[in-house]
Nucleic acid binder design. Structure first.
Lengths: 146, 146
DNA sequence: TTTACTGCAAATCCTTTGCAGTCTG
DNA sequence: CAGACTGCAAAGGATTTGCAGTAAA
C-alpha cells in the first residue's frame, strides 16, 4: 500500500506542516470511502471534535488535491465533489447515486483514445471521466423495489 | 432527422412561446456546433442583433436543457459548459486545448460500461466524459514548432 | 385576453482571499 | 525563528429569483 500516510509525524497528506485541523480533515477524507463535498468534510471534522473553518477546509482540500491525494470527481447539488485517490495510478470513479459510495476503477478511456477512428486526427492529451450508477448493494435494493 | 426545429413557427426549442430573444438564443446554441457557456450565448445573440439579458439566457438554456435540446457537458473556467445535442444519440465532446474547438465524438465509454470486470456489479447509469487535446490543425502546428 | 417571457436589480451560494495571530518544524 | 496554517469576515463570481411590463398565442 502506497498510502499508509495519516499516522506519520509530518509532511504527510501533502501538507508542509500538519496542524490538528489538517490531520482531522485528511483523516475525514480518507475515512469517508465515498465521495465528499467540502461541506461533508467540515461537518465531519466538527463531529470528530476538531472543528475547522470553511476557508481552512477549502485550503486543505486544495493542498491535498495539488498533492494528488484527492481528486475532484464532479459535483452534487452545486457543491464540488471530491474523492480520495487510493494511489498514484491513473483511474476514475464510480459514484453510486444510491448511497454516494465512490469506488475507483481502471481508466476506460485509455483503451480508445489511442486508435479510435472517430478521433480522426484529434490527439487526446487529457480527459475527465466520472461514471454514475448504482453499486451492487443499491442495485439489488432497487431491484427489490426498496 | 429528429431536429428540423428552429424554423417552425412555435413551440420549437422546447419553449412554450418563442420570443425573438429565445429564437436567437436557440439559433446560437444550434449554430455553435461546439460547446458553449451561457456567456458565449449571450455574446453571440448580442452580435446577432438580438441582445438578451443574462437571466433570459439562463432561463432559455434551462428550458432547452429540460427539453433535451442541449446538455450540460462540463465546465470551462468556472462557467457551466453546454453543448447542443445534434440528435438523440449518445455522444461526447473533444475539446481542443489549442483553439478551443469542440467536436462531438461517439461515446467511448459505452463499450466498456457493459461488461467490464472491474465494475464488479456496479451498474453504470450515467457518465460524464470530456476529452481534451489538440485538433488535427493544432497538433500539426505544434509539431511544426509554431 | 391569458400568461409566458424579458430585464433589471437584488439575492444566493459556493469558493477564494486578506490579514493578523498562532503554532509547527 | 521562519513561515505555514487558522479563522473571521469581506470579496468574488456564476446562477437564480422577484416583480412589473411586454408580447406571443
Amino acid at each position: 500500500m502506497q498510502q499508509s500516510l495519516g499516522r506519520e509525524a509530518s509532511n504527510a497528506y501533502g501538507f508542509r506542516r500538519v496542524s490538528p485541523q489538517r490531520r482531522a480533515i485528511a483523516d475525514a477524507a480518507l475515512g469517508l470511502d465515498g465521495a465528499f463535498t467540502v461541506d461533508d468534510l467540515t461537518r465531519n471534522v466538527a463531529l470528530a471534535g476538531q472543528p475547522a473553518g470553511a476557508a481552512t477546509v477549502y485550503r486543505a482540500v486544495a493542498a491535498m488535491e495539488a498533492a494528488g491525494w484527492v481528486e475532484r470527481v464532479g459535483e452534487r447539488g452545486g457543491h464540488a465533489l471530491f474523492a480520495h485517490c487510493s494511489d498514484g495510478h491513473h483511474h476514475h470513479h464510480l459514484v453510486c447515486e444510491g448511497c454516494g459510495t465512490v469506488r475507483a476503477t481502471a481508466c476506460p478511456v485509455e483503451r480508445i483514445t489511442q486508435d479510435s477512428p472517430e478521433l480522426d486526427g484529434f490527439v487526446v492529451t487529457r480527459h475527465e471521466v466520472t461514471l454514475y450508477g448504482l453499486c451492487p448493494q443499491c442495485a439489488v435494493q432497487r431491484a427489490d423495489g426498496a
